[in-house]
Structure formats: C-alpha cells, structure tokens
C-alpha cells in the first residue's frame, strides 16, 4: 500500500501547479483550467484521506466538489463567451476596468 503522504504530495503538486497557472497566466481559459486543476488536487487529498481513515465522507466530498466544479465550469465558460463577444479578448490584463 502506498503511503498516504505520497497522495498528499501529489495533491499538493497538483494544487501548486493550479495556483501557479491562476497567478501567472493571462488567458482566462487557461486560468479556468488551472482552477479545475486546483480543485482536483484537493479532490485527491479528500479521497486519500477518506480511504486512509476508512470514511466514505472523503469520497462523498470529492463528488460534491466535482459537481460544483462542473457547474462552475459551465457558468465560467458562459461568462467567458459573453466577455469575448463584448471585448474581443480573453487576455485578463486587458480586463481591468473594475477599479476606482
């Protein structure tokens, strides 16, 4: 059996890649994908912890996160399309009108 720390390490790596993507990339689409990656990193930690503790709650929570992520992806993509129609760009640095 693989030690739980390995799962948590994988989870941390996935989450870190996601964070790096969100912070550094300019393309909104990539940022959304990075957010998915972060969520899935967390899912790995949930499932691993559930399996390690013999508790189904971890798996249930992972499904919950997936469902929310699916909804979020749908809303996020819809916003993205609306945004692109308006601004003809998906570059996040161009979209900075929301300031004082």
């Amino acid at each position: 059996m693989i030690a739980p720390s390995a799962y948590l390490l994988l989870s941390a790596i996935l989450f870190g890649i996601g964070v790096a993507g969100v912070v550094t990339r300019k393309n909104v689409l990539i940022i959304l994908m990075s957010v998915e990656l972060m969520l899935n990193g967390v899912n790995v930690a949930f499932v691993a912890a559930g399996s390690y503790l013999g508790d189904v709650g971890g798996g249930v929570f992972a499904f919950m996160v997936m469902t929310v992520a699916a909804a979020e992806a749908a809303v996020g993509l819809a916003l993205l399309i609306a945004l692109f129609r308006l601004k003809e760009t998906v570059d996040i640095t161009e979209l900075k009108v929301l300031k004082w």
Binding site: V22, V23, T24, K26, I31, I92, T93, L95, K96, V97, L98, K99, W100
Partner: peptide, 13 residues
C-alpha cells in the same frame, strides 16, 4: 487606491 488595480491576477496573487 492604487492597490485596486482592476487586474484579476493581482487580486489572486
């Protein structure tokens, strides 16, 4: 007010 630059990346950071 310069902290609120409107760039989402900045906020995320």
């Amino acid at each position: 007010r310069r902290l609120q630059g409107g760039v989402v990346g900045g906020y995320a950071f």
